[in-house]
Design a binder for these strands. Structure first.
Length: 581
RNA sequence: GGUCCAGUAGUGUAGCGGUUAACAUGUCGGUCUGUCACACCGAAGAUCGCGAGUUCAAAUCUCGUCUGGACCGCCA
């Protein structure tokens, strides 16, 4: 029989209608003389009622959780209503019951507040996916993809697929690799992103490209990181940074309207990379709360506190955050915990001062003169029981430590709301960073265009050169990043020189791209947004597994399929591969 | 590669040297005509992740190992 309604559809207005419903038995409530079944499908729940006078009563008694059934029945108004369910005013008196399939006792509960351990849930992922929250997450994921496509299609973008079997590139993340049977000893790599292909599509004249693209990176996992993930990948020709940011911003506003019914009237704020690092200690600041980093280097230099003065003499800095009401929130023991947290980021310690009754006390107060304390007071918007947390070290360590502390404390103290979407652009990224080995590394990627006015710096002082690069940040997540690309061969060569990529390597790894630059490559640029992360933010989860249908564990295993697994000797020999051990 | 946490009936937890291994929920049986976390009564269900060691005695302590998780490194 054809299903007439889903399980979230029937209302009082349907009373007396004959309906056909299908779904899973979510719950059986046997009152002796009366039997209720909650029938679940992906939309919701409808209550079925069986009366002992019914010939179906005995059969209904045999139903168990997760049986799949089809029922025909009449919609009636309930004697006792349930205002927690959209269908709570009605129930269906069943006149025909067909058991479509039975179920063993499931190893996990199919309900939202189930606290089953993650490994059990992953092993039986197909059961876990039946949970309403996960069902809703994938609904949102679908709607978001639709909204993205709808917007970009309207803006004349073409959706074009790029290869999954492609070539390994030297920089960036470790590649996942696929052996070639036809070409023994040679390997494809799975793309870390469609970066080079989308640039070549611009050379190919498509002008506006997008793809909801799978990307692969063989790096260690985190709660917000899977080895394969999805990007909204966009590339355009002839548009400048502001124009690409505008399209992206309008796309995000479209998504927020379509998926969350939220209007964003104002432009997303724009701050520079430098400002982000100085004020928030991170390139992806959560701006839902303040607690900005404040420099105390000048005051600290005047104190007799050796830790500060010797750090400053060695080029270090001193900065602090003001934890509002922190003196009440963090006891001595609590501060010790924060110190332990700070040490994860290479800080040697965490200094503090309390502000109570209009004066500082505790911690490092004794190292400051009254005059210096007054100066300190003027730097912060202090109220009673504030707590200053101070870190002194290299700029890098200070920023990372205080940036992480800031986020950590906000989380501990619930300073943020999941429904507060603080979209933010971070611009003016440096082209390169110099690491311990004194070599230069791309902050973005090696195809990023240097700002016109900084072109000369590539030769003189590469570290000072800024890029046409922009990141979109929300709630402390890097939602995506993009840049204007180099379309000029001389500049590209210069960048490779700074990066120390030899001519031979340039030829070997990027020859096709460099060749393409010879044939009328248009000015182009684009952006890539982390699709999974966007969904995480939209459905308020911090666990990426909640938005990926079949995710991998922290060690890259799929507990459902047991991937990755060994190959047979025959397969290995076909590929010309020997396993050494 | 490193640090930390966890692994005990189907599921989630308690127990932290000697217990009949406890509790909740689920399962099974019974009573019950308005439940929706139905209620009540009863029952079954556990080589305490695995392997060694210490001890008269190990779920409990030690070491190793496996699995899962969080984080650091890593992720242009």
């Amino acid at each position: 029989m054809k299903r007439t309604h889903t399980n979230n559809e029937l209302r009082l207005t349907n009373t007396k209608e004959t309906v056909v419903l299908k779904g899973w038995v979510a719950k059986k409530r046997d009152l002796g003389g009366l039997l209720f079944i909650d029938l679940r499908d992906r939309t919701g729940i409808t209550q079925l009622a069986f009366n002992p006078s019914s010939t179906l009563y005995e059969k209904a008694l045999t139903l168990k959780n997760e049986y799949v059934i089809e029922v025909t029945g009449t919609v009636i108004e309930r004697q006792s209503k349930n205002d927690k369910l959209p269908t709570g005013d009605i129930e269906v008196t069943v006149t025909k019951l067909t058991i479509l399939n039975t179920s063993k006792q499931p190893p996990i509960y199919i309900k939202d507040d189930a606290d089953t351990l993650e490994d059990t849930r992953l092993k039986y992922r197909y059961l876990d996916l039946r949970r309403p929250t996960l069902q809703q997450n994938f609904q949102v994921r679908h709607q978001t993809a639709q909204a993205v496509r709808e917007f970009l299609n309207n803006e004349s973008f073409l959706e074009i697929e790029t290869p999954i079997l492609t070539k390994s590139t030297p920089e960036g993340a470790r590649d996942y690799v696929v052996p070639s049977r036809v070409n023994k000893g040679a390997f494809y790599a799975l793309p870390q992103s469609p970066q080079i292909f989308k640039q070549l599509l611009m050379v190919g004249g498509f002008e506006k490209y997008y793809q909801i693209a799978k990307c692969f990176r063989d790096e260690d996992l985190r709660s917000d990181r899977q080895p394969e993930f999805t990007q909204i990948d966009i590339e355009t020709s002839f548009l400048n940074q502001a124009e690409i940011m505008d399209i992206t911003e309008r796309m995000m506003k479209h998504v927020m309207k379509k998926v969350k019914n939220l209007e964003f009237k104002d432009d997303f704020p724009i701050i520079t990379y430098k400002e982000a690092m100085n004020k928030y200690g991170t390139d992806k600041p959560d701006t839902r709360f303040d607690m900005q980093l404040v420099s105390l280097t000048d005051i600290a230099a005047k104190t007799d506190f050796k830790v500060f003065t010797s750090n400053i003499d060695n080029g270090g800095i001193v900065k602090a955050i003001n934890v509002k009401n922190g003196a009440n929130l963090y006891s001595r023991k609590g501060i010790d915990k924060l110190t332990k947290f700070a040490k994860k980021f290479d800080a040697k310690g965490l200094a503090f001062l309390r502000y109570q009754n209009n004066a500082f006390n505790g911690g490092i107060t004794k190292f400051f003169t009254d005059e210096q304390l007054t100066e300190l007071e003027s730097k912060f918007d202090l109220t009673d029981n504030d707590l200053l947390l101070v870190v002194s070290d290299t700029e890098k360590v200070v920023h990372q430590t205080l940036g992480q502390l800031r986020a950590h404390i906000a989380k501990e103290q619930n300073l943020t709301s999941d429904e507060d979407y603080d979209f933010l652009w971070v611009v003016d990224w440096p082209m390169f960073e110099q690491r311990e080995d004194k070599k230069y590394y791309s902050l973005h990627h090696p195809f990023t265009m240097v700002k016109d006015e900084d072109l000369e710096l590539l030769d003189k002082d590469p570290e000072k050169a800024l890029a046409y690069a922009y990141d979109l940040v929300v709630q402390g997540y890097e939602l995506g990043g993009g840049s204007i690309r180099i379309h000029n061969k001389e500049v590209q060569n210069k960048v490779f020189d700074v990066l120390g990529v030899s001519k031979a390597d340039q030829r070997e790894k990027f020859g096709f791209l460099l060749d393409a630059l010879n044939y009328g490559t248009p000015p182009h640029g684009g952006i890539a947004l982390g699709f999974d992360r966007l969904i995480m933010v939209l459905v308020h989860t911090t666990n990426i597994k909640d938005v990926v249908a079949f995710p991998k564990t922290a060690s890259g295993q799929c507990l459902l399929t047991k991937a990755p697994g060994p190959l047979s000797d025959e397969q290995l020999s076909d590929l010309g591969i020997k396993i050494s051990k």
